[in-house]
Simulated assay, not measured.
Amino acid sequence: MKIILTQEVSGLGTPGDIVEVKGGYGRNYLLPQGFAIPWSKGAEKQVTVIRRARSAREIRDLGHANEVKGQLEGLKVSLTARAGDGGRLFGSVTAAEIVNAVKAAGGPTLDRRRLELPGSIKSVGAYPVSVKLHPEVTAKFSLNVVRAK
């Protein structure tokens, strides 16, 4: 089955890629989840629109990725969240909140889908966060979650 990816799928490709997958995987998972659209000649024209949008968001090249990595690794990122007496959060910290905290700390604008979290963040403390900036470059920084007063 030929499909066009609309989102990044680990091990398969990036948005705008035309890939061949098994019928069940495409029909039962990729299409219903919105990760892909069925391939057709008309849909293939949409690929250029998807790629154009991706290039606007993406890191330009390896040199730019290393520059952004340098900015991130020297950054102190702190996030304030509501927590109970034991330090347990009401809810969990999301990738979008981390991206906003990085921007508030003076860092670059990141794509939330590129963040790699150590699991769900549900209590106050320091957590390692990595960001896949480029296929060859991964930046790591520490996120400090503090309790709101």
Rank of each mutant, 00 (worst) to 15 (best):
A81H: 07
H64Y: 05
K140W: 07
R60P: 05
V47G: 03
A43G: 14
S142A: 14
E116W: 08
D85Y: 10
Y29G: 10
D61V: 04
A104D: 12
L72A: 08
V124Q: 03
G84T: 08
K122N: 12
V21K: 04
H134N: 03
E67T: 14
S40E: 00
K69M: 11
K45R: 11
G42P: 07
P108T: 04
A65P: 10
D17A: 06
L31K: 14
A126V: 15
V124R: 07
G34I: 04
L72G: 15
E97M: 10
Y25N: 07
S92Y: 03
G91V: 02
K122Q: 11
L30K: 08
Q33L: 08
P38Q: 14
G86K: 15
G34F: 03
P135Q: 00
R114N: 12
K132G: 04
S123N: 13
L117E: 00
A126E: 11
S92V: 06
S10N: 06
V129C: 13
Y127F: 12
Y25A: 03
V19M: 00
S55V: 12
F141G: 09
S55H: 12
G84F: 08
V129G: 12
Q46G: 13
W39R: 12
D111P: 01
A96C: 10
I121W: 03
E8H: 11
Y25W: 00
Y29K: 14
D111A: 06
A81W: 04
K149S: 09
N66F: 01
L143I: 10
E97I: 09
W39N: 10
G74I: 08
L133T: 02
V77G: 11
G91E: 07
L143F: 09
V145N: 07
I37L: 06
V47D: 03
S123I: 08
R52H: 06
K69F: 01
I59G: 02
Q71M: 13
D85S: 14
E97P: 09
G23W: 01
L133Q: 03
A43Y: 01
F141N: 05
L31F: 04
I3A: 05
A65N: 02
V124E: 03
I121R: 04
R27K: 15
A56L: 07
H134D: 03
T80K: 11
A96V: 14
I3Q: 02
A56C: 03
V49P: 10
N66C: 15
N100M: 11
Q46S: 08
E136Q: 13
Y127W: 12
L115S: 08
G11L: 01
S10D: 05
Q7C: 14
A95H: 09
R82T: 13
L79N: 09
A101P: 13
N144S: 12
G106Y: 01
K149D: 09
A139Y: 03
F90G: 06
A96Y: 08
G91C: 04
Y127T: 04
E136C: 05
